[in-house]
Design a protein around this nucleic acid. Structure first.
Length: 433
RNA sequence: GCCCGGGUGGUGUAGAGGCCUAUCAUUGAGCCCUGUCGAGGCUCGGACUCGGGUUCAAAUCCCGACCUGGGCGCCA
C-alpha cells in the first residue's frame, strides 16, 4: 500500500510560480515562530526548508493550536496550498489544510539542529542521527556520496573492473600494522588491513585493471585526528603499466574530485578557500625530501620514515599536493619494485600539505624476487603461498595504489578531525553507535 | 604507549577557596504580540562526572577512577 505522502514534494521543488497549487510536503519541524496572530512552522526536508504559515483568524482553530504544540524535530506531513509571498524565505509559503504528525519528537533535544549553539564532536557522534540533520554535517555526507560516485565513474570510464575481496583473512598479511583478530569457526582469522595481496592476485587473473572501494581495518591504538580503526580505501591495480602511469591516474582523479566538489552548492558551509589542485602534481624524491628537511633543521636520517613534523615541514614548504618517490626499500613493503643498483624502490606517497593521502608503487612481478623480498623482511614465504602462487603462472608487470577516502575528504573540506567524515567512526574508544 | 589539557542544566559556556540557594546564550514550560527568517518582550523550570581527602568553609586545592580534547609515537 502506498502512503498518501509518497507524492510529496521536496521543499526545493516548489516555487512561487506554483501559487495556488495544492501540494504536500513532509519533513522535520525545524523551527517554530509564534507571532501571536500568525504562526510559522519551518519544515525541513533533505533538500531545504519550507515555511508553513498559519493565520489565527483564517485557519481552523484546532489546526492552529495543534500546529503550535508540535515539538521541534517531530516528523510532519503537510497538505496545503502554495502561496507566492515576497516576505517568505523562498518567496513562497504553504497555507496548510492538513497537518499530520507522523512522529512526535521527545525533548529536550540532544543537539541543536539550527546551528545557533554548537556541540562538540563527541556529543555530535553520540547523537549522529541528529547531527546529520544539521546543514554542515548533511553536506559532508552528500559530498562523500558524490565523491565516491565520481571516483567510480572515473575508473569505470577508464576500463576498470570493480572487485570485492575478502575482509576476513588468514594470518598472512603484508605486515606493518596490527590486525584485529577474530574467531573464524575453530580457527583464528583477522580483519583485512588492505586488499593489497588480493588485488595483485587478480592481476594474474587477466582482469587487467581492477579497483575496489571497501573498508580496511587497523588495530593500531592510535589516538589522533587523522587515524581510524575502520577506514575506507580506494584501491587500484593496473597491469602492463609503470609507476608513473598510475601516479598520473591518481592526480587526475584528485583533480577531478576537487572540480566536481567545487561546483557543489553546499560548499559554503565549510568557509573554505577552495582551490582545485593543478596537475601534474610536483614530484620530489625521498632524497630531495630529506635534503629539504635537513635544511629546515629537522632531525632525520636517510632511511627513516617521515615523522608528523617532517610531513608538516614539507607540506608548508611545497604548499600543494605532491608526490614523494623513490623511497628506501627498508621502509616500504616487500611488493614494491626495487630500483636496480640502489637501496630504493619504485614506491610513491601522495601527500596533501597536511597529511598523507595515498601510497602506491610499481610491484614486483617476479616470483623469485618477491619470495626473496618476503624472506628478507623476516616473513615466512610459506604463509604467503596463496599469494605467491599467483606469480608462478604468468603475472604481468603491474602498478597500483591505495587512497584513503576519509583523508581525501578531510583534507579537501579543511576539517580538523577525520571522524567528521565518517557517519559512525570506529576509533580507539568508540564502538557505539 | 608517552606527554600536556579538560569534565558545570539537554547543548555551548562563565566562575579558579567564602561574594555561588552558580553566569550568559540556546533549548523546555507558560504568557503577550498579525510577517517572522538566529523574531522580540516577560515569567518559570533545569547543572558543578563519581569516590576519597585537605579545610571553619570546596564547582574551585590534593589523590584515585571513569569519560574526554590536543600533541607525539605507532600507522595509512
Amino acid at each position: 500500500m502506498k502512503l498518501p505522502i509518497e507524492n510529496r514534494k521536496y521543499s526545493t521543488e516548489i516555487t512561487a510560480d506554483d501559487d495556488g497549487e495544492h501540494v504536500s510536503i513532509a519533513g522535520w519541524v525545524h523551527e517554530k515562530r509564534d507571532l501571536g496572530g500568525v504562526f510559522f512552522l519551518i519544515v525541513r526536508d533533505r533538500e531545504g526548508f519550507a515555511q508553513v504559515t498559519l493565520h489565527k483568524r483564517k485557519v481552523d482553530k484546532e489546526l492552529f493550536e495543534r500546529a503550535k504544540k508540535v515539538p521541534r524535530e517531530s516528523v510532519v506531513a503537510i497538505e496545503g496550498i502554495v502561496k507566492s509571498e515576497q516576505k517568505a524565505p523562498n518567496e513562497y509559503e504553504i497555507i496548510p489544510e492538513r497537518i499530520e504528525v507522523l512522529s512526535v519528537a521527545s525533548h529536550v533535544l540532544p543537539l541543536d539542529t539550527t546551528g545557533k549553539v554548537g556541540a562538540e564532536l563527541d556529543t555530535r557522534l553520540d547523537a549522529r542521527f541528529m547531527d546529520v540533520r544539521t546543514e554542515r554535517t548533511k553536506h559532508i555526507f552528500i559530498i562523500r556520496s558524490r565523491v565516491l560516485k565520481a571516483i567510480r565513474d572515473f575508473l569505470d570510464e577508464r576500463g576498470f573492473i570493480e572487485i570485492n575481496t575478502p575482509k576476513i583473512v588468514s594470518a598472512a598479511t603484508e605486515g606493518g600494522t596490527a590486525l584485529f583478530p577474530i574467531t573464524y569457526f575453530e580457527r583464528e582469522a583477522f580483519l583485512n588491513q588492505s586488499p593489497q595481496l588480493y588485488k595483485q592476485m587478480l592481476i594474474a587473473s587477466g582482469l587487467d585493471k581492477v579497483c575496489e572501494i571497501a573498508p580496511i581495518f587497523r588495530a593500531e591504538e592510535h589516538d589522533t585526528t587523522k587515524h581510524l580503526n575502520e577506514a575506507t580505501s580506494i584501491d587500484v591495480e593496473v597491469a602492463f603499466v609503470s609507476n608513473e602511469t598510475v601516479m598520473q591516474l591518481l592526480e587526475e582523479l584528485i583533480a577531478l574530485v576537487y572540480s566536481m566538489v567545487a561546483a557543489y552548492p553546499g560548499l559554503d558551509s565549510f568557509n573554505l578557500d577552495f582551490k582545485i589542485p593543478k596537475t601534474p602534481f610536483r614530484r620530489i624524491t625521498y632524497d630531495e625530501a630529506i635534503d629539504v628537511l635537513l635544511e629546515r633543521g629537522e632531525q632525520i636520517e636517510w632511511g627513516e620514515d617521515l615523522s608528523t613534523s617532517a610531513e608538516h615541514i614539507l607540506g608548508k614548504t611545497i604548499g600543494e599536493h605532491y608526490f614523494i618517490t623513490d623511497w628506501p626499500r627498508a621502509i616500504k613493503p616487500f611488493y614494491a619494485q626495487p630500483i636496480e643498483g640502489k637501496d630504493t624502490c619504485d614506491a610513491f606517497d601522495l601527500m596533501h600539505p597536511r597529511l598523507e593521502l595515498a601510497s602506491g608503487s610499481q610491484r614486483v612481478h617476479s616470483y623469485e624476487l618477491l619470495k626473496a623480498n618476503i624472506e628478507s623482511k623476516g616473513l615466512s614465504a610459506d604463509s604467503f603461498e596463496f599469494y605467491l602462487n599467483a606469480f608462478r603462472y604468468g603475472m604481468p608487470p603491474h602498478a597500483g595504489w591505495g587512497l584513503g577516502v576519509e583523508r581525501l575528504l578531510m583534507s579537501m573540506l579543511g576539517l580538523d578531525n577525520v571522524r567528521e567524515v565518517v557517519l559512525f567512526p570506529r576509533d580507539r574508544r568508540r564502538l557505539v553507535p
